[in-house]
Amino acid sequence: MALIEACRAGFKYADNTIFEDVSFTVQPGEIFCLLGPNGCGKTTLLDCLISSKKLHTGMIFLKGEELRTLTSVAIAKRLAYVPQDHHKSFPYTVEEVVMMGRAPFIGMFSQPGEADYAVVHDILADLGLSWLRERPYTQISGGQLQLVMIARALAQQAPLLIMDEPTSHLDFKHEILLLEMIARIVRETGIAVVMASHFPNQVFYLKNQGVPVRAALMNAKTLCYCGEPSEVITADTLREVYGVVTRIVNYPGINGQVYKYIVPLGMSQEGGEAI
C-alpha cells in the first residue's frame, strides 16, 4: 500500500494559490525527490503532508487513511519530519533531543522508559553519534545537527521520513555524507524518504547509490513532471522549469554503471524571465 497518496491537493493563502492539482504516490523503500525553483511551494507541500498546514482542496492519504481523520499521534507513527531550519531554544543534550522522537509511543503523562532509551541508543550508535550523546545540541556542527534531527525522526520508527532540503546548510563533504546516510537508511530499513531539494544532481547521486529514486519537478504551482529521474530531469525540463541551459553528461561509474551528471551552461536567453 502506498505510504502517501496525494490526490489533486491544493493549498492557498487567502487568494494566493501556492499549488493546486498535485497528485503523486510514495511507495515503501523509495526516495521521492521534490525539485523546483525557490518559492514554488515545496516546503508548503511538505507542511501539508505533516499536517502542519491544511490542504485547501484535494486529499492526502497516509497508508490509505485520510490525513484529516488521523490524530497527531497516528500521523507521527506514519511519518517523521526532519526540518530545514531547526530553531534551537535550550541547550538540551543530543540524547534528550533524539528521545523526543519517542513521543508518539509515550503516554500523555508518562516519561520515557528503558525501552525508549534502548531505541535511542541504537539509533545514535547506528548514525555514529554515540560520542555526542551528552553534548548540548547547541554546540555541535551543522552536519551533526542534521544527523541529530534525522536520528530524532528515526526514533519515531515511522515507515516514512519527510526531509525539507536536508543538505541546505552543509558543506561539500557533509552533503555527500548525508546523501549516503539517507541511501543507506532506505536500503537497510526499507523506510521511504520524501525530500525537497534544490540540487537536481542529488537525485542522480542517490540513484547511483542503487536505491529506487523517483523525481518530481514542481513549477507553475503544480507538479509538472514526475517519474524516473532520467525522464524527469532532462535538459528540456530544466530549461523550462529553472530557465537554465544544461547538458546532461554520462560518465562511467564504478562496476560498469553509467552515472549521469548535470552540467549547467548558463541562463537561458529566451523567455526573458530573470531571477
Binding site: 505533516i50 531547526h86 523526543m100 513521543a103
Partner: peptide, 16 residues
C-alpha cells in the same frame, strides 16, 4: 520539552 521545539516540530512529533 517537546513543546519547546516549536509548534511545527512538536506537532510532527505527535503532540496535539
Amino acid at each position: 520539552n517537546i513543546l519547546s521545539m516549536g509548534d511545527k516540530e512538536a506537532g510532527a512529533l505527535g503532540l496535539n
